[in-house]
Design a protein around this nucleic acid. Structure first.
Lengths: 147, 147
DNA sequence: CTTGTTTTGACAACATGTTGACATAATGAG
DNA sequence: CTCATTATGTCAACATGTTGTCAAAACAAG
């Protein structure tokens, strides 16, 4: 369990995560291209859809693990593109509620369909057990940095 | 093997890779802070050290999987900071050879030491077999996008 | 109610990546 | 050798993230 050879393997995983992250962003950008959407915007749609109700910018930011400033910029741009709409927040004069527009919902659901087929394709040749181990390891590593 | 439940697990892995990537960059930035180095610059030092001999900017870019423009900007800034030095390339008037300065080598070796201890710490609680499965899965996914 | 703290939006500066465009240097085909 | 192509450095615009700062709104004590 305390095999000193674990360090180098861990290091390789780190480098692979960097590389794969870049490749996945490109894949996401490409998938969203036909809807005029990038990976970052897709994630905002996902956060809103997951929440199931309108959210403030800081709420979205916390759920995505980004700063509120980064999310604010995305949200402002996506409102320009009619993917989102703003509602007044009865509980807070400044913090507007962000919700999916009809267009936003349509785009997100089409992307979800496309993505689920893609995910199935990508996992050919990898067993479910391997995928689950991978997810579990990545989550444990993430958690170790969050505290 | 063609379990339809693999898709959702794959999707979770994708999201975890995004999240972990961000966390790892922060960790790297923090580790390099005392040497005035960021994750991106660290990777340039690593590429040069791995190559074992002076490299041109496009060579470094190809080995890192980045565009030459991105690497050029890093390299120019790192030369300002005395981490790298340029040599004339006898084979090419414009494409200068980039090499580690004495400072660059020192910083990289100190960072490597620090990083290897960190990698060992991070892998406590994870078996070597789990780490190896994870690395293998990530590599297979990466490879599927490279062609 | 008043006061001190936290949350939020807005703005700016920076780091790191991308793409596109341009001129020049190197190379290869004929 | 000449000419078309490729490789390189440079510059600019953009996307996405960060941090820091400021003022206004919300909130929590007292």
């Amino acid at each position: 369990m305390n095999d000193p050879q674990k360090g180098p393997v861990f290091t390789d995983i780190v480098l692979e995560v960097f590389k794969l992250g870049g490749l996945l962003v490109s894949e996401g950008d490409h998938m969203g291209e036909e809807y005029g959407i990038t990976s970052a915007r897709w994630k905002v749609l996902g956060a809103l859809s997951l929440a199931g109700k309108p959210q403030t910018v800081p709420q979205i930011a916390r759920s995505m693990g980004l700063t509120r400033q980064a999310v604010q910029r995305l949200v402002d741009a996506m409102r320009e593109d009619e993917l989102l709409c703003f509602q007044n927040n009865p509980d807070h004069k400044r913090a507007k509620l962000i919700c999916l527009s009809a267009l936003g919902e349509t785009v997100f659901s089409k992307l979800s369909e496309k993505q689920s087929g893609w995910a199935m394709e990508c996992s050919t040749g990898i067993t479910k057990a391997e995928l689950e181990t991978t997810l579990s390891v990545l989550k444990r590593i993430s958690e170790s940095f969050e505290r």
